[in-house]
């Protein structure tokens, strides 16, 4: 139950959506772009989100694109996670998506919603960070396309009135050797204790994390250490983990110490699998 009143808007084009946002804001009200909607509904129950109006972008054609061109894979922000799982255009992303929440919830949770979410795991962003993908963002001045690294730092950095329209992936990344491991406190459903995505580009490993810090991240410093192949795996992992951007999370899912233990094991398995494979 959303304990406040709001109006619901369903624009059919990008420009209409952006205009709506602006108009509503001009009236002194708080608009929110609305995709799958699950997080907005969840957080509003807990008084953590408020909106006077929601602008549903799921019906904008550009947001629904799933297009596999030879040199570019385009994924609309409104694609549900199960759509991505079933179409499987990017196996690592499909795997990461398939570990979020549960299947029924994923029928509703969208790629854009997960990437832009407030709840800090945002696990589908991990493959996107590894694939150096581009993001297409709509705003007042039209569309802009950037490398994800320019706009995603811990969370997506959008200007007011902007929303994520598409993700563009270079298809070479969709066929690289990869591993995605999500470890929970217990069981098969729920938030991660830690989640790690890794791909191997030529000889180099790329790695991104969720559940380690209160934001998902990929770190050059961590990767450098992991790729120092002249050193034993154990040393590389120890050094890599000294490069984490923030102290490891310590919360209801698990203590920092334990997360570190799990992380080390996951990285060991991944390194062995990808370097030998």
């Amino acid at each position: 139950m959303i304990p406040f009143d709001l109006t619901y808007h369903r624009p059919s084009s990008i420009s209409e959506a952006v205009q709506l946002f602006e108009q509503i804001q001009k009236q002194g009200k708080t608009p929110l772009y609305y995709n799958g909607g699950t997080e907005i509904i969840t957080l509003s129950r807990l008084n953590l989100v408020f909106a006077d109006a929601v602008i549903d972008i799921k019906h904008i054609p550009e947001c629904r694109v799933l297009d596999r061109k030879q040199n570019e894979l385009t994924l609309g922000a409104a694609l549900s996670l199960t759509t991505i799982e079933e179409a499987n255009p990017f196996p690592l992303l499909a795997k990461a998506a398939s570990e979020v929440a549960d299947h029924t919830a994923r029928n509703q949770i969208t790629l854009g919603g997960n990437v832009c979410g407030q709840i800090f795991y945002r696990e589908t962003v991990l493959p996107l960070l590894l694939a150096d993908c581009d993001v297409v963002i709509a705003g007042k001045s039209g569309l802009r396309q950037h490398s994800i690294h320019e706009v995603f730092d811990q969370h997506i950095r959008l200007e007011p009135g902007e929303f994520l329209v598409q993700i563009k992936v270079d298809p070479i990344y969709t066929t690289m050797p990869h591993i995605h491991i999500k470890r929970r406190k217990q069981g098969n459903v729920g938030y991660p204790l830690v989640t790690v995505s890794m791909i191997k580009k030529e000889r180099d490993l790329r790695v991104a994390f969720s559940g380690v810090c209160p934001f998902p991240f990929r770190s050059q410093a961590v990767e450098e250490q992991l790729n120092a192949r002249h050193l034993p795996i154990e040393t590389r992992i120890v050094r890599a983990l000294q490069q984490l951007p923030e102290p490891i999370l310590d919360d209801v899912e698990g203590s920092a110490e334990y997360r570190l233990f799990v992380l080390k094991n996951i990285l060991t398995d991944m390194l062995i699998a990808l370097e030998e494979g």
Partner: peptide, 16 residues
């Protein structure tokens, strides 16, 4: 209580 929700209080689910 830090976990008064199924998100963080997870009972056994199907398949487990």
């Amino acid at each position: 209580v830090l976990n008064p929700q199924f998100r963080t209080y997870q009972p056994i689910r199907f398949g487990e």
